[in-house]
Design a protein around this nucleic acid. Structure first.
Lengths: 242, 242
DNA sequence: CAGTGGTCTAGACCACGTG
DNA sequence: ACGTGGTCTAGACCACTGC
């Protein structure tokens, strides 16, 4: 790889990075797999170890690769615990993370998206949509009711599974090769309507946190739209800015 | 600086970083100031340019230094706009940031902290506390009422100022040399009580977002405790996870 | 022990912003 | 034209892991 190719003005490390990323995204390198060491990558692309290292470092900083000194570098394989820790932002009074369970999970496929789904997921009008509803519990008591919309094209057969798990993002990676790298949660306070109040066991009008979430993949494509109504007793949603 | 001093097992770049940080924190390098270039830093500490660069890069990644290619590296000087963009997480329906104003600002000094202030700010019982209350408006209409507590020791004279500004964190840096690097917001939904409802012009019982915020300095010390009650019409709080 | 990621060097050249 | 940050190299040694 020559420095500054005519058609690609990016630095060398950025081009190496892009090609490594492609291997992760395409599934050529699978979750959990050991990738070649820095000298092998350097040799393959005809760059120095330092340049290969910088490419790997960026992907590690984005949590797509995981380095372990003395062992090697691996493609991340998200576990349910990873996903909860990273994207589930609710904690109890003492600061301990809430560990939700799911119940009453229903999944259907709609042949056409609603207007809201179309806008949230940037679909066209003919794209089927998977709709999942579920109730999430804490110590056996319901505290979240949520509705999830997914593009069916990217998750074929998901709606028919009898084993839709509690944490979805690790399933997205394991079974569909889709890595969620970012979520945007829009929070508002709303009064519980009759149906939410019934499911959550609270009075109509009880203040709830409404979370309107879009999850994004590597290339910033919206991959999931999720609306959750949360009744947080002795708990809170934590947002950290830095 | 020899590699791996006896008393300091950290890498060279980490030790250089620590000494640069000290200069920022102590005010030896002031906000907005141009710092020496990478070769000068390298020469001063007896390391290579690459090592100096790594130290500077980490501080730039933490937003304590600002690099401008061709110009130099500067100590960050937060402007009110910076602070809003970085730590004020509210947006309207179209995704545009809300720009709040402040009114009815009242500041007092209490000789002893309340139990809650003591716990939030990790104070001892004899530390005076500055208490600020204010109403924040949007298009001239109140939408947030908040109460702020600060350790008086770190902000001497602040309560007596007649010009407490709308954005506080840039004042903290400019006038007191304290840089806020992280905020933790704990969000819950609550029903408006009589006083909040009155100030915000909503019915008692209206669902509000309550934000319980702790702001932290460089060394992870809590520096501000702020409780805000927010009435977000056609707006939301945005939390991004990655 | 061998092999990996992590640190460090000395020097070179490139790209950008200012004067 | 000059000085800055940004990239890149070739080579060295350190620190950790597992056999």
């Amino acid at each position: 790889m020559r420095a500054r190719d005519q058609d690609d003005a990016r630095p060398l490390y950025a081009r190496v990075r892009a090609r490594l990323l492609q291997r992760i995204r395409s599934g050529e390198w699978k979750p959990g797999q050991l990738i070649p060491n820095e000298f092998e990558i350097a040799a393959e692309f005809g760059v120095s170890q330092g340049t290969a290292r910088k490419a790997v470092s960026e992907l590690a900083a984005e949590q797509l690769l995981m380095r372990r000194q003395g062992l090697g570098t691996f493609v991340v394989a998200h576990t349910p615990a990873d996903v909860l820790f990273r994207f589930f932002n609710m904690f109890d009074k003492s600061g301990a993370p809430l560990v939700p369970d799911s119940r009453d999970v229903h999944a259907t496929v709609a042949p056409h998206p609603s207007d809201a789904e179309l806008a949230a997921l940037l679909l066209d009008g003919d794209s089927p949509v998977i709709r999942i509803t579920r109730t999430r519990t804490r110590h056996g008591r319901p505290f979240i009711v949520e509705a999830i919309a997914l593009p069916e094209r990217l998750f074929p057969g998901l709606a028919a599974r009898s084993d839709i798990p509690n944490t979805l993002y690790d399933l997205f990676q394991r079974s569909y090769g889709i890595i969620v790298v970012r979520t945007d949660d829009r929070l508002t306070a709303v009064a519980a309507a009759a149906d939410e109040a019934g499911t959550l066991g609270v009075a109509v009008g009880t203040p709830l946190i409404k979370i309107d979430r879009i999850a994004f993949t590597l290339d910033a494509q919206p991959i999931e739209w999720r609306v959750s109504f949360c009744h947080l007793e002795d708990a809170h949603y934590l947002s950290r800015s830095r």
